[in-house]
Amino acid sequence: MRQISTDAIIEAVKKISIDASFDLGHDVVEAMENARRVEESPVGRGILDQVLDNARIARTEMAPMCQDTGFAVLFVQLGQEVQIVGGDLYDALNEGVRRGYKDGYLRKSIVADPLSRKNTGDNTPAVIHTDIVPGDKLKITIAPKGGGSENMSEVKMLKPSDGIQGVKDFVIDRVRRSGGNPCPPIIVGVGIGGTFEKCAYLAKKSLLREVGNRNPDKFYADLELELLEKINKLGIGPQGLGGTTTALDVHVEVFPCHIASLPVAVNTQCHAARHKEVIL
C-alpha cells in the first residue's frame, strides 16, 4: 500500500481551488477566440472581447474570473492500493476547499440548509464524487460550478419510443428556454442512459472533457456536432443579446439503461468553464 497523508491532500485541494478560479483552460479561451472571429452580431463580438479580456486579467492578476466562484464539485479517483493516513479523506477534501476559498478570497456561496438558507461561511461542504480505480495514485479534479448555469440544467425521463429525436428536442428546448441566463456562450453537457441520477452525473462529468474533443463513438460524436450546430442557430448569442455563438461545444456521454427507460440530462456550463486536477 502506498500512503498519502491528509495534509498533502488538504494542500493540493487548496491549490486547485484557487487556481481554478483564475486560470481558464486554453481550450475554452481558444474556442472563444474562434467564436469571436465568426460571430455575426456586433454586440455579441463586443461581449466576447470582454470575456476574453476578462480571462487575461484574471490570469495575470490571479483574480477570480467570475464572482460566482461556485459550488466546489470534486471528482476523486482513489487508487485501490492507496492508504490515506492522518485522518478522514472527506474531511481533508473539505478542509482543502475551506482553506482555498478563504486564502484565495473566493466567494462563499453555500447555504447550510436549502430552505432556512444560512451561509456556511467557508464554501463547504463540497460535492464529492468518488471512484475507486486500479493503481496507487489519488487524482482529484475540482470543477467549481456557478449557480446561474447550474439552475438552467434539467433531467427528463423520456420513453424509449421518443428515441434520438426526443433527445435532440429536449436538449435544444432546454437551451432555448435558458436564453441569456446561464451566461452564454455555454458548454452543454448531455448524459443519456443509466438511471435518473446516473444520467445527471454523466452530464456533469462530460463538462470535464476539453472543448473540441469528441465522444470516441462516431455516432455520438456526430450527435454532438449536430446539436452544436442547431443550438448556434437559435440566435440566443453571447449573454442572450442575440448572435450566432450560443454554445462553444456539446459533450455527450452515454451509459446502458433499463429496457423501460431513456433518461436524459442536460447540465449547462457557463463560459467560465473551470476545472483543475492534481495527481498525488
Binding site: 483564475f22 470575456v51 479580456d53 476578462n54 484574471a58 474570473m65 457557463c270 463560459h271
Partner: peptide, 10 residues
C-alpha cells in the same frame, strides 16, 4: 445587461 462572467474586468 452587463457581461456575466466578466467579474475581473468589471
Amino acid at each position: 445587461a452587463a457581461t456575466g462572467g466578466a467579474g475581473a474586468l468589471i
